[in-house]
């Protein structure tokens, strides 16, 4: 595959490919068939060789790794065509001792998860379904801020590619365009009282979805919102770089906590002065009053200001 990418416009003979990968022509033919099944368009010319015509936007580690060189995430990228949930895979890998910076990407999730019993609609090759494994030397309460930082990282990555996109953060880390959600983040942690063993940040971004099932009325994709098809590869690389930046800052800079809270408040239209209802069993409603020093949402309601630790914020 890499061989064809490196010679993207020329015809490469089957014999040459076989030599390079230490195989024979019959095996090369079998591999080419396999790539074609995956959606890679490869022209075969009798007696001359193969030529790469067009490639689907697959998040292949060989192609992604060079784009994120120098970050924490360049060395252990795992890619699946179909998986239950990238977060589940990453948490299992974390328990089994996998390296910090391991990345789990999928073209399709069959059991994409959200908070509680929520699921994440994850159709084939339309979105980015990406989970990263971290082993932060932070206390569990500091690590909580990664939840907010992950939302900032997605927003940063999108604006790096298209500064015009107005991605609005909704506490704790949903991203909306025109009030419709296109990105959800689920963070899972395994920690002792004073030490985080490992933590997984799972990001689901609707990138090129053309439509959504009727029950997802409040969903959108970057393509639907902007009218253009996005390169998932480019966005995924920008996301990993952006996550790397946020994570390093939180791990090394003592002012990162305030910076995260300040930037979150700046990037969210609903974190202050917005009438909301919190779905968390308690049923708090009121007007948002910013974040406290720990990153929790403050809501001013009938009983005065309440600190919201968790739950879904419904905008009114």
């Amino acid at each position: 595959m890499r061989l064809l990418v490196n010679h993207a416009t020329v015809v490469v003979s089957g014999t040459k490919i076989a030599q390079e990968i230490g195989s024979n022509r019959a095996e090369v033919w079998r591999l080419i068939q396999r790539l074609r099944e995956l959606g890679v368009e490869i022209a075969g010319r009798p007696a001359t060789g193969y030529r790469l015509e067009s490639m689907p936007d697959l998040l292949l580690p060989d192609l992604l790794a060079p784009l994120v060189r120098g970050t924490l995430f360049a060395d252990h990228i795992h890619h699946y065509y179909k998986i239950g949930s990238t977060n589940t895979a990453a948490m299992k890998a974390g328990a089994a001792g996998a390296a910090e910076g391991s990345v789990f990407l999928a073209e399709q999730q069959t059991e994409g998860r959200g908070r509680g019993a929520h699921t994440w609609h994850s159709t084939q090759s339309d979105g980015i379904y990406c989970s990263v494994l971290l082993r932060p030397s932070l206390s569990p309460s500091e690590a909580l801020l990664l939840s907010l930082a992950a939302g900032l990282a997605v927003k940063g990555a999108i604006n790096e590619i298209d500064p015009k996109v107005n991605a609005d953060l909704k506490w704790p880390n949903d991203l909306l365009i025109d009030g419709k959600k296109f990105c959800g983040i689920l963070t899972e942690m395994n920690a002792e009282v004073t030490r985080v063993r490992y933590l997984v940040v799972g990001v689901g971004i609707n990138v090129n979805h053309g439509s959504f099932p009727a029950e997802l009325k409040q969903a959108t994709s970057l393509r639907l919102a902007t009218g253009t098809v996005w390169s998932r590869m480019e966005l995924c690389a920008a996301l990993l770089k952006s996550l790397d930046r946020e994570y390093r800052m939180l791990s090394t800079d003592s002012d990162a906590r305030q910076s995260i809270i300040r930037r979150f408040e700046a990037g969210s239209t609903s974190v202050r002065g917005r009438e909301v209802e919190i779905e968390n069993g308690g049923g708090v409603s009121g007007v948002t009053a910013g974040l406290d020093a720990r990153g929790f949402l403050l809501v001013r309601g009938d009983k005065g200001i309440q600190t919201i630790l968790s739950g879904t914020v419904r905008l009114k």
Binding site: R115, P172, M189, N280, F296, L309, S310
Partner: peptide, 30 residues
């Protein structure tokens, strides 16, 4: 859970669960 960060709490000892001290959905402190 805090801020959509799900923290799996593990037992740090082997034995028998004698008592659950918190009810489901309740807010808890550090």
């Amino acid at each position: 859970e805090a801020m959509k960060l799900m923290n799996e709490i593990e037992s740090d000892v082997a034995g028998e669960v004698v008592k659950k001290l918190i009810t489901n959905g309740q807010p808890i402190e550090y």
